[in-house]
């Protein structure tokens, strides 16, 4: 039951090319080493019990959900809350521990691609959510809450976009489909995350205001700048990323046999547009929506199937 949460962003081994997986490791290791150094400076020997307990909290918090409709539920994922409440460095460290344990203990996410998972679920959301929160941390609480909700949603979208890009560049997925499908599904998942994160931080702000003041003091202007820049990148890149040439086409173009290859027999939504609407951006948007709806429908059916089976197993156990 505890692991039924929709965590489609845990990339398993075998889905990324070794080059991409290695590149992600380089970025992830850089961030982790920095995060360790910075966190150690501010927490000293308190760091291990604090970060360890918070990582266990994220894991346990992912069990908490709320029913939405039709057997689906909103979930808490946690990266945004960790970054805002604990500061970005500790947040990244906590998410790294969560991802590592999930991969090592439950095979939820691969081992060789763990660097990519840390980049997707730890670093990207921390940059986006903390950066945006930090930009308004001295504003009235209402503004802060709205920003936190929006940044939590955006951090999920950012994570989905990075995943789609990694899959696309690895030649595992077509950008045309992966980008709108992953963004579409996570637009829904992100709403649950946004609402829960905002409500949770609202409670924390009311009861322990000094905690958030100290987390806001961790990062300076650099965090605001990088958070806002990354957010803009996600928003601007999302509509265009689906038009990237596919990973396989990249390889083919490099080797110069693109012309000799047979044209792709993919004709369902050519160029990710609807034929009758022409090739304008409206056509792309409608096509993206159809893709997103299809993906969402598949996810809901899958979730129901899994949910039904688990309910049956639970009845059997009881």
């Amino acid at each position: 039951m505890f692991f039924a949460s929709i965590q489609t962003l845990h990339i398993p081994d075998g889905f990324l090319s070794l080059f991409i997986a290695g590149l992600c490791w380089v970025v992830a290791i850089g961030f982790i080493l920095l995060a360790i150094r910075r966190s150690q400076r501010s927490f000293d020997e308190r760091l291990v019990p604090l970060a360890g307990m918070m990582a266990a909290f994220i894991f346990a918090g992912q069990m908490i959900n709320f029913p939405v409709a039709g057997g689906t539920s909103g979930h808490f994922i946690g990266a945004a809350l960790a970054a805002v409440a604990l500061g970005p460095w500790l947040g990244i460290l906590v998410m790294t521990a969560v991802i590592a344990l999930q991969a090592l203990l439950f095979q939820d996410g691969g081992l060789v691609v763990m660097g990519a998972n840390i980049l997707v679920m730890g670093i990207t959301p921390a940059l986006i959510s903390y950066g945006l929160y930090r930009a308004v941390s001295h504003r009235p609480r209402r503004v802060q809450m709205i920003t936190i909700a929006a940044s939590a949603w955006l951090s999920i979208m950012g994570a989905a976009l990075v995943t789609a890009l990694l899959l696309g560049f690895s030649g595992t997925s077509s950008f045309r489909v992966a980008v709108p499908a992953l963004l579409g599904v996570h637009a829904l998942i992100g709403i649950g995350e946004a609402l829960i994160t905002a409500a949770a931080l609202n409670l924390i702000m009311k009861t322990r205001p000094q905690l958030l003041q100290s987390s806001a003091a961790v990062g300076g202007r650099g965090w605001i700048a990088s958070g806002v820049a990354l957010t803009l990148l996600v928003i601007l890149l999302a509509p265009f990323a689906s038009r990237f040439p596919d990973g396989l086409e990249w390889v083919a173009a490099e080797n110069g046999f693109l012309d000799t290859a047979v044209t792709a027999p993919f004709q369902l939504l050519p160029g990710y547009t609807i034929p009758i609407l022409g090739a304008g951006s409206l056509s792309t948007i409608v096509a993206s929506l159809i893709g997103a709806l299809l993906a969402a429908a598949i996810m809901i059916i899958l979730a129901r199937l899994i949910h039904g089976r688990q309910a049956k197993m639970k009845r059997l156990r009881d």
């Binding site: 918070m54 908490i64 709320f66 808490f76 409500a199 949770a200 409670l203």
Partner: peptide
């Protein structure tokens, strides 16, 4: 139950509560 927004608020309150309890526990353990 109430609206989806209300349910989300309840779930969020639970997460916040769990966070505070974990934080206090980490201080105690330390």
């Amino acid at each position: 139950g109430g609206s989806i927004l209300w349910r989300a608020k309840v779930a969020g309150g639970m997460v916040g509560q769990l966070f505070l309890r974990s934080l206090e526990r980490s201080e105690r353990v330390y």
